[in-house]
Design a protein around this nucleic acid. Structure first.
Length: 355
DNA sequence: AAGCCGGGGGG
DNA sequence: CCCCCAGGCTT
């Protein structure tokens, strides 16, 4: 069995001092707000992807009260391109709750923390350990992989039984000191040494006691998620420009894919598109220019988006600009939350204004 | 227990 | 082309 401050933790900490990452943006200064924001951004997202978004976000909204006071559109604009936009909506809602319930600060209590939207057990542990040095375990993808190999735990970690076993193992290794460093050490270790493909076992500080290495099962642990067929979908994107080269954007519904983001009006087929066009725009639907189709992949389905473009259009008199439908100039795109493939399309199609 | 929710990087 | 990544929420 493992003692509380066992070899596992002390070896990991020694490795971290030597080879870990000590200069990530959220470490300097390592405030609760910055730790929290980084942990939310890092959910299912790699460090290199997160860094520029983190810098931009804290520059615009440097404190929790500033985040709470921001508009949802501002928050989504800062998140635009990162994906999993529920994280941004939950972050924003949680900030408001902290202002209401916790005097504008992130609570240090684990139950109060987990009660906030977007913060589960692992994220709460990461925040508590890194922001205050409190003794809580994490169980993210890195830790799951390291523990599954080190202890030879088979079975996909997504199943409750395997996850429960891994939580117990994670807690069994917790040291009594340096919890912030230990937490970072685990993540750095999984991200840079005990990697999914081709881990550096030959220089691993845990190699002497790793069950997977001993049994030659490193490549097959952790057990992969069972794969399922991914459905293919199609949709039309309606790209209407007015005489000033502004594009008509529509706010998406608050649930579902790309919730609450601004995007091009979307239709399942030409019949639906034609009807929407007729009731909102003045012009000839059949005058559309078909642009190159866009292939976009989500985790659980793939979609082919066919953009149709019209120029010099006007809105029907009965429609007008409203809260869910706006003519947007190219310069305004940066201030809105827009799905990545749509943003890319618009920037490619709408010429930058020559100054 | 399974599905939903993005986008990018790597083999 | 496949898989995975500092997961959490909903059903």
């Amino acid at each position: 069995m493992n003692t509380a401050a066992d070899d596992f933790a002390s070896r990991l900490l020694a490795w971290y001092d030597r080879a870990g990452r000590h200069d990530l943006p959220w470490m300097h200064p390592r405030t609760p707000y910055r730790v929290w924001l980084s942990e939310i951004m890092l959910q299912q997202t790699q460090v290199q992807t997160v860094m520029p978004y983190f810098e931009r976000f804290v520059a615009a909204l440097p404190t929790l009260p500033a985040l709470a006071a921001a508009s949802q559109d501002d928050v989504l604009a800062l998140w635009s391109g990162l994906g999993y936009y529920a994280r941004a909506r939950n972050l924003h809602a949680a900030a408001k709750l902290c202002v209401e319930r916790h005097d504008g600060e992130l609570p240090r209590d684990p139950d109060a923390l987990t009660a906030l939207p977007g913060i589960g057990r692992s994220t709460a542990g990461a925040i508590l350990a890194q922001a205050w040095g409190d003794r809580f375990a994490i169980l993210d993808g890195n830790v799951k992989r390291v523990l599954a190999r080190f202890h030879g735990v088979a079975g996909w970690p997504g199943t409750p039984a395997v996850e429960k076993a891994l939580w117990l193992l994670a807690e069994s290794h917790l040291p009594h000191e340096r919890l912030a460093d230990y937490t970072q050490a685990q993540m750095d270790f999984g991200a840079t040494l005990c990697t999914r493909h081709d881990p550096a076992c030959v220089i691993c500080p845990l190699q002497a006691d790793c069950v997977a290495l001993r049994d030659g099962r490193v490549a097959e642990l952790p057990t992969a998620k069972p794969s399922k067929p991914i459905p293919e979908r199609h949709a039309l994107l309606l790209l209407a420009e007015d005489a000033g080269q502004r594009v008509l954007l529509q706010k998406r519904p608050p649930t579902g894919i790309w919730a609450s983001l601004w995007s091009l009006p979307e239709a399942a087929d030409h019949e639906t598109a034609r009807a929407w066009f007729a009731s909102h725009l003045q012009g000839d639907y059949d005058h559309a220019e078909a642009l190159a189709p866009i292939a976009h992949a989500f985790t659980h389905y793939h979609v082919q988006l066919q953009p149709l473009r019209w120029r010099g259009l006007g809105l029907s008199a009965a429609v007008r600009d409203n809260d869910d439908l706006r003519w947007v100039a190219r310069d305004e795109l940066v201030s809105l939350g827009i799905p990545a493939p749509v943003r890319k399309l618009l920037l490619a199609v709408i010429p930058a204004r020559s100054s």
